[in-house]
Design a protein around this nucleic acid. Structure first.
Length: 461
DNA sequence: GGCGGAAATT
DNA sequence: AATTTCCGCC
């Protein structure tokens, strides 16, 4: 049990102080009661390494969207082993673990490129909004880079709207963790939906494939919701994720999360799931910040700014499996050829497919959950910049009941409904309208405004 | 290197 | 459940 492994590897005591990087919300970790609890998962770890510039020499985004190369397999394995207290970890074992992700459709191997894997972000995007009918959206069907990505995105307002019944305000920042001053203690660290770090932002923190920057630098095919445009270098940042000056305090605010923003403006019961500030639709005291970013460090999203990856959150990936399940169940009826699955139509085949598609997906695609780090002893090695100290994640907790602050629960914890898309049952037939992201075109803005008005009428009636 | 089966581990 | 460990095969 005791080992000198890094227990807090990549998990900051306080998210904000954590290298301008990802902080994982508490809900992203398995409950301690579950077996293998609070163990960070490999893909999670990989993403963290990927987002940290200091590991660019070890592992980095490279090549196609979502693709990364393990430049130093031994080192990555060593880091992973350190993290998991597995001193005998090696690339062979690590790669075996990665291979298990094939069936889960979280990753797949880039054939022909050594040590190169690719995240299935498109899946991730879909599952990030299970409440929305994204799977059937022409927008996403077109954006799915795992199905070839050859079709032209339907960028019509309707298409986009189909994905985001409620587009968020673009300028609202939210804190990842509401470090409540009134409720100190274990519950002091309220987790908020916008803790979806991947939905947060950040400047690209990896070496962008130069060849890909050019083409995407201009004229993106469309504006992304909530002002997000992965085609742009700063795609994952609403403010280009400025490096925080040394000594920056925690981010008092984090970037807006489309989902949260959406929920915050939805009629009950969803708005009630949000903390008062959000539920109120509103304003949060900004730390002299603009758009909730200036007040402090943001959690950065470090995904390749390529098309197709609108956002990637822990939640996203964490639900990849569940998506896959749903996909099989409803999105990808046999013979439709409209597979959102990995490799479909790309020539890249999933292991299953490669094997003739006979094999059943053994991983029943239950939700992947991110786990924590309290598994190892706290005797971290200090040869890395990993911080020591109690993990905020381990201290914070999700408060699901209204009494405790109405922290928005993970999507997966939302009450089940008969509909595959829970929100549908509470949403007006006409998508509730949102406050518009700056990126929306004026026409779309009007369109949305009209919808908003209509929706409000409906709600009031 | 890469793959997946199988069993063990946590 | 998610690896970890080991292994034979290509």
């Amino acid at each position: 049990m005791d080992c000198n492994c890094v227990s807090d590897l990549l998990i900051p005591p306080v998210p904000a102080l954590w290298t301008p990087g990802i902080a994982f919300p508490d809900w992203a970790y398995k409950p301690e009661s579950s077996p293998g609890s609070r163990q960070i998962q490999l893909w999670h770890f990989i993403l963290e390494l990927l987002q940290k510039e200091e590991y660019n020499g070890v592992i980095a985004w490279q090549g196609e969207y979502g693709e990364f190369v393990i430049k130093d397999p031994d080192e990555v394995a060593r880091l992973w082993g350190m993290r998991k207290c597995k001193p005998h970890m090696n690339y062979d074992k690590l790669s075996r673990a990665l291979r298990y992700y094939y069936n889960k459709r979280i990753l797949h191997k880039t054939k022909g490129k050594r040590f190169t894997y690719k995240f299935n972000f498109s899946k991730v995007v879909l599952v990030n909004y299970p409440i929305l009918d994204m799977a059937n959206s022409p927008f996403f069907l077109a954006q799915n880079h795992f199905n070839g990505g050859t079709s032209t995105p339907d960028c019509s307002p309707e298409a986009i709207q189909s994905l985001f019944p409620r587009l968020p305000d673009s300028g609202r920042g939210t804190s990842l963790f509401e470090r409540s001053t009134t409720a100190p203690g274990p519950e002091g660290d309220k987790l908020r939906l916008d803790s979806f770090p991947f939905l947060s932002t950040g400047a690209p923190c990896y070496t962008k494939p130069p060849s890909l920057l050019g083409p995407y630098a201009r004229n993106p095919p469309f504006d992304y919701p909530w002002g997000f445009n992965p085609y742009l270098p700063g795609a994952f940042s609403l403010n280009n994720c400025p490096k925080l000056p040394p000594g920056s305090l925690y981010p008092s605010q984090f970037y807006p999360n489309p989902l949260q923003s959406s929920l915050s403006q939805l009629p009950h019961p969803f708005s009630s799931l949000l903390p008062p500030a959000e539920a109120g639709g509103g304003e949060r005291g900004q730390t002299g910040g603009t758009n909730g970013t200036a007040g402090g460090q943001q959690i950065r999203l470090c995904l390749p700014p390529y098309p197709g990856g609108l956002s990637l959150g822990r939640t996203d990936i964490a639900n990849v499996a569940s998506l896959a399940e749903r996909e099989r169940a409803e999105v990808n009826p046999p013979g439709t050829g409209v597979s959102l699955g990995l490799g479909a139509g790309t020539g890249l085949q999933s292991p299953t497919e490669r094997r003739g598609g006979v094999k059943q997906d053994p991983e029943s695609d239950s939700d992947l959950e991110i786990t924590d780090l309290s598994d190892c002893s706290s005797d971290n090695e200090n040869d890395h910049d990993f911080r020591k100290g109690p993990s905020l994640a381990s201290r914070s907790q999700i408060v699901l009941d209204g009494k405790k602050g109405s922290v928005l629960p993970p999507i997966s914890s939302l009450p089940p409904t008969a509909s595959p898309h829970p929100l549908k049952s509470v949403m007006p037939v006409s998508p509730p309208p949102p406050s518009l992201p700056l990126s929306l075109s004026p026409s779309l803005a009007l369109h949305e405004r009209h919808r908003e008005t209509e929706t409000l009428k409906m709600i009031r009636s």
